[in-house]
């Protein structure tokens, strides 16, 4: 059952998708092919899939830690933005300085930037017991406005005719491409490393164990002497750091400068990815790729079949509903094995 449920979800999505396409007077078989197969039937397509999936996977893994411990950081979008600004600020400050230390420096700045932004909800939560869902969400709006201010003001490209975007980063501040002829950059490898690291910590390390215990059995955790505050900090630092790194990867990889819209909602989409991946790093990798595939499929459907962009949204929504609904099968399975119902939250 555990094995079949995602399959079932996909089959259901494809079937209802076909009904939808038939209603829209579109050849269903061709539409499904255009959505799911055509985008990844070339090397370029696969590279693009990874480019799109990289920030989603990274953030989702970071968030998974918190979600397992019932720490609800939904402000990854803001943490991504501040991470991008911290690393981008460094790149602009050292504009035209050719040094191999710049990229690592930007990575560190990105991670620290994301962590700083996540530290605010962590501090408010541990010190004043303030709900982190709300503070992290509010801070996302603040971060986006900070970005807007910088890009319309002080960080505007001096030769940019007063348009709101920064200079293009010089070579030393851009992530190298790792697959010649495509846009696949070093960030893709970093995401894979994060999957491995995330898996090790979650499955083998004491921190991962503590996080899981706190999430599933808070009472037991306090008997065992795990400090709740420590876990809150840790969760938000991991989530914020991963989101900040994702921001750095976006601006120094595919974008190459600071622009008013750095992320088309990756911080929010990654929350869905984390749950689709069952809060498991390997699951996040697969779910992130699946999610990315629907975006690529959406482009493709517009180009090849003149389907409006809105179809992608509906289709994504359906796919998510079915995948989430099929959780019930997995849950029943788990119940039989362990006689205990894990709470989703």
């Amino acid at each position: 059952m555990l094995y079949w449920s995602p399959m079932l979800a996909v089959v259901l999505t494809i079937l209802s998708g076909m009904v939808m396409f038939a209603l829209l007077d579109v050849n269903p078989a061709k539409a499904i092919h255009t959505f799911f197969v055509a985008p990844v039937s070339s090397l370029d397509g696969i590279a693009e899939l990874f480019v799109k999936a990289t920030p989603l996977v990274l953030i989702a893994i970071g968030l998974s830690f918190g979600f397992q411990a019932n720490v609800w950081n939904i402000g990854a979008e803001g943490q991504l933005t501040i991470g991008a600004l911290a690393s981008g600020g460094l790149a602009l400050a050292f504009y035209d300085v050719d040094t191999p230390f710049l990229l690592p420096g930007m990575m560190i700045a990105g991670v620290l930037g994301g962590m700083t932004w996540a530290a605010i909800p962590a501090f408010l939560k541990t010190r004043f017991n303030t709900n982190e869902i709300l503070t992290s969400l509010m801070l996302t709006y603040v971060a986006l406005l900070v970005l807007s201010y910088l890009v319309h003001g002080p960080w505007k490209d001096p030769e940019g005719m007063n348009f709101p975007e920064s200079r293009l980063f010089h070579e030393a501040a851009q992530l190298p491409v790792i697959l010649e002829g495509t846009r696949l950059h070093l960030g893709g490898l970093l995401a894979l490393l994060a999957v491995a690291a995330g898996w090790v910590v979650m499955a083998r390390h004491i921190i991962g164990f503590q996080i899981k215990v706190i999430g599933m059995a808070p009472m037991a955790a306090s008997f065992a002497g795990f400090k709740k505050a420590r876990i809150v900090w840790l969760s938000l630092m991991i989530g914020g750091g991963a989101a900040g790194l994702a921001g750095m990867i976006e601006i120094s990889g595919p974008i190459g400068q600071i622009i008013p819209v750095i992320s088309p909602g990756y911080g929010f989409t990654a929350i869905i990815v984390a749950f689709l991946g069952r809060l498991n790093p390997v699951g996040c990798l697969l779910a992130g790729c699946l999610m990315a595939l629907t975006y690529l499929g959406g482009d493709n459907a517009q180009i090849e079949m003149n389907l409006p962009n809105a179809v992608t949204g509906v289709f994504q929504g359906m796919l998510l509903f079915f995948l989430l609904a099929c959780d019930v099968l997995i849950r029943y399975r788990l119940r039989v094995v362990s006689k205990k119902v894990p709470e989703a939250a």
Binding site: F268, I272, G313, F321, L324, D327, R331
Partner: peptide, 18 residues
């Protein structure tokens, strides 16, 4: 069907906008 509330809510938003 016991799906996760946070993820389902976000999916509902994507679906509704589309």
């Amino acid at each position: 069907l016991m799906s996760n509330q946070v993820a389902t809510g976000l999916a509902l938003t994507i679906f509704g906008l589309g």
